[in-house]
Amino acid sequence: MTGLLDQIIQAVLLGGLYAIFALGLAISVGVLKFINVAHGDLIVAMSFLMLTLTNSLGLPVPVALIVLIPVGAGVGWLLQFGLFQRAASQNELQIILITFGLSVIIQNGLLGLYGADTRKVTAGGIEMASINLFGNINAGVLPLIIFVTACLLIVGLEQILYRTGLGIQIRAIADAPAAAKLVGLRLAGLMAVAMAMVGITEAVSGGLMSIWTNFDPSSGSSRLLIAFEVVVLAGLGSFWGVLVGGIIIALAQTFGGMIDSAFQMLAGHIVFLVLFLFRPQGLFPKT
């Protein structure tokens, strides 16, 4: 019995990581109106950068995480300004094709730079540490940190989007781009800022993922699919919905993995497809 409860707690905490994967995609779908197929690959690229910062440059893990954040923001901003914005006049299909090309470039770039080996960042024991929650139920310190980070990111994003002028402008361009032009909002600049926010979530995802799970240059695709499933399950109504979506996928994977380790990924996909068939608008759609 405690074994089951243990698994559920693990899954919920893993859901936090999945939510961070998905937050950036939710912003890009909601505000920029396209899906960046390279989202997962950018996350993995951040994991590799984390590896370089800690292993090759010898930075402590928390410092490396902090360094990663401005890098993520810069990459996001540059991608939007230099690449996606140029395709904005074309249709959605073309933007997908561009991000597809980007995905192939990043995957193979990482393969060329780091080789095909599976990697992991060691964080000096924190990944092993666990604390006693209640009774004889324990939770890993790292998963707890990641879950709390997910909650903080959600609170932070909601504060930025609903409480600041910048956020109101970003929501305005998402809501009615034609009207936004007529009242003089600077669309290109605001979209680049939104993409920089996406980049920050990618940096945080990649940094935390590199400590928790193994990764290799081709890991991006599965991260993208998880992020996509979480965003669609959640609907675009609220960032907290993204956390719920992340927990659902993580629970499905955990239970699938309990039947047979090969069912782990499959169970996540199947639960997604079934929920999607019954609730295509997502669990927390925009009202």
């Binding site: 959605e92 699919l225 996509f228 069912f263 990924m265 996909h269 497809l273 068939l277």
Partner: peptide, 28 residues
């Protein structure tokens, strides 16, 4: 029938999820 009502970007990645699922099923 499952995917047609999705808008462009969702349909694209949705079809990928379906392909991934079928691949995993095939391997079992």
């Amino acid at each position: 029938a499952m995917l047609y009502r999705l808008r462009t970007a969702y349909l694209a990645v949705g079809s990928w999820v379906v392909a991934e699922t079928l691949m995993l099923v095939a391997s079992r």
